[in-house]
């Protein structure tokens, strides 16, 4: 599951804006397969954790109601150019991935 995250963090003044795109099917578990009529099992990201230089700045808790290939953006203060920003996610099936981006 490597490279499922694309993230960009940019510092402007005191504010760092993080934008991330994650590749994930985000199945709610309610959708039906049109051919077989069976329900497609739920498969979605439950938690995304963002760490700035090792400190957690944001934890996103998601349900299946977040769109497929989720987009996420948030801001925090105190980030500088060259700081590390780690993003990691875990889904309901135990799948996970993480990436470390540099603040630009």
């Amino acid at each position: 599951m490597a490279k499922s995250i694309r993230a960009r963090a940019s510092a402007k003044g005191d504010t760092t804006t993080v934008k991330a795109l994650i590749t994930h099917p985000m199945e709610t578990g309610l959708r039906k397969d049109k051919k077989t009529g069976k329900k497609i099992p739920a498969h979605f990201i439950q938690e995304v954790v963002a760490k700035h230089n090792g400190n957690t700045v944001m934890t996103a808790q998601w349900s299946g109601a977040v769109s497929k290939n989720p987009y996420l953006s948030f801001q925090f203060t105190g980030g500088k150019k060259g700081d590390s920003l780690e993003l990691s996610w875990v889904d309901n099936k135990g799948g996970k991935d993480s990436i470390t981006a540099k603040v630009k």
Binding site: V57, M58, Q61, S67, P70, F74, Q75
Partner: peptide, 19 residues
């Protein structure tokens, strides 16, 4: 749909896409 737990340095802004 989603809940964002913010740390002390986070600003009051989140953006995402929902169904």
């Amino acid at each position: 749909a989603a809940n964002f737990v913010l740390g002390s340095t986070a600003k009051g802004f989140v953006s995402t896409r929902i169904k």
